[in-house]
């Protein structure tokens, strides 16, 4: 811990700038299949022609089961893709991740498909909220905010 609030604030600002630089840097990277960074939904939405014939890994929501069609999204943009060769049978609204070859700009020949049922997605977010509340409860019992030092201190007592 650094001695003064000003010093600590300077560290926070420098590290936040570093973090944002990393966000921009990673966002500027092109897909690189050699290191298993395959084109994803946002790449296909930006330029679907560019990746035809290449292996892609995309996640999306099932909008039709026969034929299997998924909707991929990026920001406000969405696109629908046909999935062929899937050995799983997802239900409508399930989330799927597909790895396969982009045969044409609208079709992926799947070599692997992972199905995440809609209800499991709901479960995942519900238990994550439970986890967050548990941590907040423990923080309130074990720490106190020292307004003068602008820092969290251990709360003395059996819970600390």
């Amino acid at each position: 811990m650094l001695a003064t609030f000003k010093h600590r604030l300077a560290v926070v600002i420098i590290l936040t700038v570093l973090l944002i630089s990393l966000f921009v840097w990673y966002g500027s990277l092109e897909p690189e299949p050699d290191v298993h960074r395959y084109p994803r939904a946002e790449d296909l939405i930006k330029d679907e022609q560019k990746y035809v014939g290449q292996e892609v890994e995309v996640g999306g929501r099932v909008v039709s089961t026969t034929p299997l069609i998924i909707e991929i999204e990026h920001g406000d943009d969405t696109r629908e893709l046909y999935i062929t060769g899937a050995d799983e049978e997802p239900n409508k609204n399930d989330r799927v991740t597909v790895f396969g070859t982009l045969e044409d700009e609208n079709t992926i020949a799947a070599s692997e498909i992972i199905v995440k049922p809609f209800i499991n997605y709901f479960y995942m977010y519900a238990v994550s909220v439970v986890a967050a509340l548990w941590i907040l409860f423990r923080i309130s019992r074990q720490f106190r905010w020292d307004g003068e030092g602008k820092i969290f201190m251990k709360r003395e007592g059996p819970d600390g």
């Binding site: 811990m1 650094l2 600590r8 604030l9 560290v11 926070v12 590290l15 936040t16 570093l18 973090l19 990393l22 720490f143 020292d146 030092g149 602008k150 820092i151 969290f152 201190m153 251990k154």
Partner: peptide, 15 residues
């Protein structure tokens, strides 16, 4: 990235 965030949080914890 997660270690950077950990270090940012550390600036606000007296331990």
């Amino acid at each position: 990235g997660s270690l950077i965030v950990a270090f940012i949080i550390t600036q606000f914890v007296n331990d």
